[in-house]
């Protein structure tokens, strides 16, 4: 073996970098974030499973419909009607009143910084 003094440390540095996910988590277990579900309401505007993966698309559509086309009424598959509003419908006191224990739990875990709250007020003032 030639130039082992340079090649071996270089290889070890590379192996250290690519195994970062493994050694940085050594001896740790992952606590799955628990979401606090609303007590008053049973059903979301659409099926829960679908919402878990697709809520951002729905909210984006709602925003465009409300802001650009002035359409503010959403009818779901069951024929139930909702106000297309993040603050008044989703984050209402009946549903996900607490952003910290619902929205942020997943977003923080996945380093997602949605720009919803650049405009929307988080409705906590009414509760306190």
């Amino acid at each position: 073996m030639y130039n082992a003094g340079k090649i071996i440390p270089g290889l070890l540095i590379f192996l250290g970098l690519v195994t970062f996910p493994f050694w940085s988590n050594l001896g740790r277990a992952y606590d799955v974030p628990e979401l606090v579900m609303p007590e008053a309401e049973e059903e979301c505007v659409l099926a829960g499973d679908w919402m878990r993966a697709n809520h951002m698309i729905l909210l984006d559509d709602w925003r465009d419909l409300a802001v650009r086309d002035n359409k503010r009424l959403f009818t779901n598959d069951a024929g139930k009607r909702f106000d297309m509003s993040l603050t008044k419908t989703c984050l209402s006191s009946q549903c996900h009143a607490n952003k910290d224990t619902f929205c942020d739990r997943c977003h923080d875990a996945l380093a997602i910084t949605p720009n919803c709250w650049d405009c929307h007020v988080v409705p906590t003032i009414g509760e306190e």
Partner: peptide, 9 residues
């Protein structure tokens, strides 16, 4: 689309 939190788990 998939549920990202399950992917993270």
């Amino acid at each position: 689309k998939v549920d990202l939190l399950s992917v993270k788990v």
